[in-house]
């Protein structure tokens, strides 16, 4: 009977240790991902407003925004979100320059 305690106890210890390590890690990763996408979406929205306000078409900015929207459509990890945000930010800057801001 007593040896069951040792085996079950060891299993529980390992499980608790692994769980206590993995769960917060996974939760933190998900939070980082959602935050990155939130930033990316905000950048895209800003770039879209700047495009609508721009007096002329800017080919490169449109290409950048399209690419950003394509990446965003695929969803992905924080890295993809950062890339998306970067493209959108550059597109936004180009349109702002075209608007003379």
């Amino acid at each position: 009977m007593h040896w069951l305690i040792w085996i079950a106890g060891t299993v529980v210890l390992v499980a608790a240790g692994v769980g206590a390590t993995l769960l917060p890690q996974r939760r933190a990763r998900a939070l980082r991902r959602r935050t990155a996408w939130s930033t990316a979406r905000a950048e895209i929205a800003r770039a879209t407003v700047s495009r609508d306000a721009a007096p002329v078409r800017v080919e490169e900015a449109e290409r950048l925004l399209t690419r950003a929207e394509l990446i965003a459509a695929d969803r992905g990890g924080p890295d993809a979100a950062a890339t998306t945000a970067e493209y959108a930010r550059r597109a936004d800057r180009l349109w702002r320059e075209a608007s003379g801001d």
Binding site: S38, R41, A45, R46, T48, V49, S50, A53
Partner: peptide, 15 residues
């Protein structure tokens, strides 16, 4: 335009 951009940013912050 800046107002629209600001509203977009506020919407993002709310979400």
């Amino acid at each position: 335009t800046p107002l629209t951009r600001g509203l977009a940013a506020l919407e993002g912050a709310r979400k």
